[in-house]
Design a protein around this nucleic acid. Structure first.
Lengths: 127, 127
DNA sequence: TAGTATATGTCATGTTAGCTAACATGTCAA
DNA sequence: TTGACATGTTAGCTAACATGACATATACTA
């Protein structure tokens, strides 16, 4: 689509980007250093930013203001690009272990809290 | 499913959870304070953890070790629960503005870099 | 009922992330 | 060729994050 490549075209100089984002050059370089943005470069090594870069920078600014740190932002960006990476809560406890734990705990429970368990009252565990 | 409610049943005391996760009580309470875990409570206000809670705690431990801070972890957890929240890069620059910027920049480019543009050589902008 | 475990709250602390300042050097449009 | 603008680098500041440590009170267990 036409709009797409427009947004990804590196047109903007540091100068302008600073104004558009309210960030200092040093900050922007810092974010690049930590691989949160990858602006293009001219032959003379000067950064040229796309509009997508601007959006990214504003997102960074936003999340930092929220209290998320660079490492967190990086993680989040990775998740956005690869939603599969949603690292579904690795189960550190196997089902076998689980059965054992449950069994054991239930026994302890029976030994100690016979009354309340007999009543079938587990509601106290929830709120 | 049977396994499911087993994993979400609050069976484990602080004591055990500390051993299972290698976290201190202080740490676990801190994470709860910041709403990263919500263990159940007994009538007497004592925390009772489910196996799901354990997984969560281990995830937290993991991400902290990676350098992600609490705020970041919170964000990430929210994204997992509501993938729609994937906050698709809000476009701060409208298409109208975009057209204007592109137009202007292109004019400047033509004025200044007539030669290279005539050659249709934009490759220097990419790496 | 005694004794251990947990709760909550407050004060204290080290570490370090994110940033600013400053420099010398290099780029680039006119 | 010149002056404004960018570059990478170094050094240092500051605020806050994540824990530790302690005190007191309440909850469980035997």
């Amino acid at each position: 689509m036409e709009k797409e490549w427009r947004r990804s075209m590196p047109l903007l100089s540091m100068n302008i980007v600073m104004q558009l984002t309210g960030l200092t050059a040093r900050q922007i370089r810092y974010y690049e250093e930590h691989e949160l943005v990858q602006p293009a470069r001219t032959e003379g090594k000067q950064r040229m930013f796309s509009l997508d870069d601007i959006d990214t920078l504003l997102e960074i600014k936003d999340m930092l203001a929220t209290g998320v740190n660079i490492a967190g932002i990086k993680q989040i960006f990775e998740m956005k690009n690869n939603p599969a990476l949603k690292n579904d809560t690795k189960q550190v406890i196997t089902d076998a272990q689980l059965r054992a734990i449950v069994k054991e705990e239930m026994q302890i429970a029976q030994r100690h809290q016979r009354a309340s368990l007999r009543q079938g009252d587990l509601s106290r565990f929830f709120r």
